[in-house]
Computed example of a mutant assay.
Amino acid sequence: MEDATAPRADLAPRDWLEIGLQLLKDGGLRALKLRGLAQTLGASTGSFYHHFKDFDGYHAALAGYFVEAHIDPLIVALSASDLAPVERIRAFADHVRDHDMAQLALAMRAWGKSDVRAAAAIREHDEKVMAFLIAELVAHGFEPVEAEIRSYALLAIGLSQVHADEGIDRSVLREGLLTLLCER
């Protein structure tokens, strides 16, 4: 049996950051507590301090990790793909939906109201997502200003918590909105 006071050798900072994003997404900033992180990972708080100087340092790392680990690789992969521009946007939207990334972005935005590091991470997130969407829409044939407006709408819709009327299937609504905003 593992000594509860010894740091777990199998945990890396990434493990703590991933579980932190999950807890933040599921329960907001109030859920982001050291004890909850440690319990979720089956680790001691000593293991946490093996990787992070203090909880403030962890918050700083977590804010940066939000974009670095989830947005950057997605945009790089899609930008390098052989997909057509609108299909890249659809693949981005699918990934966001499949990984509940909009909920995480909303939790980050709420955190950003009280923490400048989280606010900076959200600005970076929005800038990168907007640049990706604009580039794809321009490549699809839209003028830059129109591409920017459509990109803003796509981002806003992606972050909204629109609840479709029971008379319309959410996937039909999603597909219709993507078509409306991406097609000429």
Rank of each mutant, 00 (worst) to 15 (best):
D126R: 14
D72H: 11
L173Q: 06
L78D: 07
Q39Y: 05
R174T: 11
G158R: 02
L177G: 05
E136L: 04
L154T: 03
L180S: 08
A121D: 06
L32R: 12
V138L: 06
R35N: 08
M130F: 08
D126M: 13
R30M: 03
A120W: 09
A131M: 05
G112N: 11
G27C: 02
P73C: 10
A153L: 15
W111G: 00
L41H: 03
E87T: 01
V145P: 00
H51S: 05
F66I: 09
V145L: 14
L11Q: 08
A84E: 15
G112S: 08
V162L: 15
Q103E: 14
Y49M: 09
S171V: 06
L106H: 09
H125Q: 12
A156P: 00
E136I: 02
A119T: 03
A9P: 00
S79H: 11
L17Q: 03
A91F: 07
G36K: 14
R109Q: 15
P7F: 10
V129C: 12
W111R: 13
V145G: 00
L23Q: 12
Y58H: 12
L11D: 05
I122W: 13
L178A: 10
E124S: 15
R174A: 14
L177W: 07
A135P: 01
D15V: 11
F48W: 10
A12D: 11
R117Q: 15
E136K: 07
L74G: 02
A60T: 11
R174N: 09
S114K: 06
L177F: 14
A31R: 13
I149S: 06
A107P: 09
A105H: 08
